[in-house]
């Protein structure tokens, strides 16, 4: 299983970094975050050595966009180009296929985060920054992306059209992010449930430097569930 996983992972990662896609995605994402941080959020006027307001506060919105764009091709491209049939006949387990693709895409997201480390390093050099919330923020953003990517991978496995996959992921992601925005108006019964299901509420808590096991378990559960759904979809296709 692990050898198969390793082979798929390497193949997917190579595919990313051979094409210009990965470089463009990383460069655009890092540049965009830096622009928002220094120009849109007016970091120097705010005059605080922290990243919460400038980086982590609205990061989930941009992560929905990033993951929707990155996840759209994971299965859809295989369906559209017909390589899925070859893939299905290879002696590789469905789990290894799903996890290989998933972790390769997750590695690219991780590269995006590593590229943005220039921001905390800069801030730490010009002020007395508390690294705790920064570590929490990055961990939260990573877990948030990982959960969303599992959703994107599953959505991508449902259609052969990349654009549809991307739009559906965007809508589903926005729904899971935005749930907590309507939680207050949903009344005392439904409100807490919506809040609990929202990816954003779990992410925001980490951004202030508190790693709550409830958040971590939620993200891991979310990932596990959608990765499992994904293996079921692919498995069903194999036996079709």
């Amino acid at each position: 299983m692990w050898r198969e996983f390793g082979a798929v992972y390497r193949k997917e990662l190579k595919a990313y970094f051979i094409s210009p896609v990965a470089y463009i995605v990383v460069a655009l994402f890092v540049g965009f975050l830096a622009y928002r941080f220094f120009f849109d959020e007016e970091f120097f006027i705010y005059d605080k050595a922290d990243l919460y307001r400038g980086l982590f506060f609205h990061l989930e919105r941009w992560l929905v966009l990033l993951v929707a764009l990155m996840g759209m091709r994971l299965w859809s491209a295989e369906y559209a180009s017909g390589t899925i049939e070859t893939l299905m006949t290879l002696p590789i387990g469905t789990g290894a296929l799903v996890l290989g693709k998933y972790f390769a895409a997750l590695t690219l997201i991780l590269v995006c985060f590593v590229g943005s480390l220039g921001l905390p390093i800069t801030v730490a050099n010009i002020g007395d920054m508390d690294w705790g919330p920064v570590i929490g923020g990055y961990l939260g953003a990573f877990l948030f992306s990982a959960a969303l990517l599992a959703l994107a991978l599953w959505v991508s496995s449902l259609t052969r059209h990349q654009i549809i996959a991307s739009v559906l992921t965007g809508i589903a992601g926005a729904t899971f992010v935005g749930m907590y925005e309507i939680a207050d108006k949903a009344g005392p019964t439904l409100g807490p449930i919506l809040e609990q299901l929202s990816l954003a509420s779990h992410y925001q808590a980490m951004g202030r430097g508190v790693i709550d096991m409830r958040d971590v378990v939620f993200f891991l559960s979310f990932m596990t569930f959608f990765l499992y759904l994904n293996t079921q979809v692919v498995e069903n296709r194999r036996y079709r």
Binding site: Y23, V26, A27, V30, G31, A34, G115, G118
Partner: peptide, 10 residues
């Protein structure tokens, strides 16, 4: 921050 990392990546 705006240009260094993106340029390096490209």
């Amino acid at each position: 921050n705006l240009f260094l990392v993106p340029l390096l990546v490209i």
